[in-house]
Amino acid sequence: MANIEFFDRTMLEAMSLLAESRRYLTDKAEAESQKMDLEQGLANSMETMRLVARLTQVLAWLLTHRAVHAGEMSIAEATVPDRRLGGRDLCAKDSSDAAKTLPDELQSLLSRSHSLYLRIARLDDQATARAEINTKVSGGPRPQ
C-alpha cells in the first residue's frame, strides 16, 4: 500500500510541476526571453527544452508504471528499452550553473524537474534490476 501511495504522490508532484511549467511557459517565458541578449536567449531556449524533455520523460515513465500497478502490464514489459526512462544524456545533466542568469522561476522549475528526473531514474534502474532478477528466477526470456 505504501508503494502505491508513494507512486500516487510522485504522479501528483509531476502533474503539478507540469501545470506550473505550462503556466510559466505560456504566461511569462516569451516576455522574459525578449529582454535577453542572444547568448542568454539561447541558454533560455535550451533550458526550456530540457525542462519539457524531463517532464515528458518522467510522465511517460510514470504512466507506464501506473499500468504495472494496475496489473495491465508486467514489470518485464515495462522495463524493455523502449519503455525505460529516456533522455538521460540531456535530462540528467545538472545545468544549474548555466541557468544562473535565467529568470528565477525558470531556475526553480529546472531545479525541481532535475530532482524529480533523478528520482525517477533511480526507480527506473531499480525496476529494471527487479525485472532482470524475476526473469532469472523464472528462467524465461525477457520480452523485447
Rank of each mutant, 00 (worst) to 15 (best):
residue 75 I to D: 12
residue 46 M to G: 07
residue 136 K to V: 06
residue 144 Q to S: 13
residue 55 L to Y: 06
residue 144 Q to F: 12
residue 15 M to W: 09
residue 36 M to P: 11
residue 143 P to M: 10
residue 68 V to P: 09
residue 144 Q to A: 12
residue 25 L to T: 06
residue 29 A to W: 00
residue 94 D to A: 04
residue 92 A to S: 15
residue 7 F to M: 06
residue 68 V to S: 11
residue 71 G to A: 06
residue 141 P to C: 05
residue 142 R to D: 03
residue 53 A to S: 14
residue 75 I to L: 15
residue 31 A to W: 01
residue 46 M to T: 12
residue 139 G to F: 03
residue 139 G to N: 08
residue 88 R to P: 01
residue 126 Q to N: 14
residue 91 C to W: 05
residue 125 D to C: 01
residue 141 P to M: 14
residue 63 L to P: 00
residue 87 G to P: 03
residue 18 L to E: 14
residue 117 Y to K: 00
residue 86 G to D: 08
residue 43 A to W: 04
residue 49 M to E: 05
residue 14 A to F: 02
residue 69 H to I: 04
residue 99 A to P: 06
residue 6 F to E: 13
residue 39 E to H: 07
residue 36 M to R: 05
residue 37 D to T: 08
residue 83 R to G: 06
residue 77 E to I: 03
residue 126 Q to S: 08
residue 58 V to M: 12
residue 53 A to W: 07
residue 101 T to Y: 04
residue 80 V to S: 06
residue 9 R to D: 14
residue 13 E to D: 09
residue 113 S to F: 00
residue 101 T to M: 12
residue 52 V to K: 12
residue 15 M to T: 10
residue 83 R to H: 14
residue 67 A to R: 12
residue 21 S to V: 05
residue 129 A to W: 05
residue 50 R to Y: 04
residue 17 L to I: 08
residue 138 S to A: 15
residue 51 L to P: 05
residue 111 S to A: 13
residue 135 T to Y: 00
residue 118 L to Y: 00
residue 28 K to E: 15
residue 93 K to P: 00
residue 129 A to G: 07
residue 135 T to E: 02
residue 128 T to I: 01
residue 115 S to P: 02
residue 57 Q to G: 08
residue 36 M to L: 15
residue 89 D to V: 10
residue 59 L to W: 04
residue 93 K to S: 07
residue 127 A to V: 02
residue 97 D to Y: 03
residue 2 A to M: 10
residue 141 P to K: 08
residue 9 R to N: 14
residue 75 I to E: 11
residue 67 A to S: 11
residue 15 M to S: 10
residue 143 P to W: 02
residue 30 E to W: 07
